[in-house]
């Protein structure tokens, strides 16, 4: 598994209040469904996407860009699913 490539995707936080507690919970829950190692990278900080606490410490405000990195057998699917979450603004009611 270690030999698998890291795949990445850039996404933008479109939620009105940024990645606050609820969307962070959503993101961590989704990430935990995959076996791949998944991280979020923003401003030279890289954190575990399966940890809500880690995600919160990135303090991603509305409009922030962030890179999702995944490595593992289901990395590609994981990227797509997580990207969808960002695009759907974590299904928050506007």
């Amino acid at each position: 598994m270690e030999s698998l490539d890291v795949v990445t995707r850039r996404v933008c936080v479109a939620n009105e209040l940024g990645l606050h507690a609820r969307p962070a919970a959503r993101l961590a829950r989704e990430a935990q469904r995959f076996t791949s190692k998944i991280t979020l990278c923003s401003q030279e900080q890289e954190v575990d996407a399966k940890s809500i606490l880690d995600i919160l410490t990135l303090a991603l405000g509305p409009g922030c860009n962030v890179e999702i990195r995944a490595q593992g057998e289901d990395a590609q699917v994981a990227l797509e699913q997580l990207e969808q979450l960002f695009l759907n603004r974590f299904e928050e009611v506007q």
């Binding site: 507690a21 609820r22 962070a24 829950r29 606490l53």
Partner: peptide, 16 residues
């Protein structure tokens, strides 16, 4: 109560 969902994730957080 929606915040309860975040509390559940914190309990399941690998870090903690």
């Amino acid at each position: 109560a929606r915040i309860i969902d975040s509390h559940i994730m914190m309990l399941q957080d690998p870090k903690l």
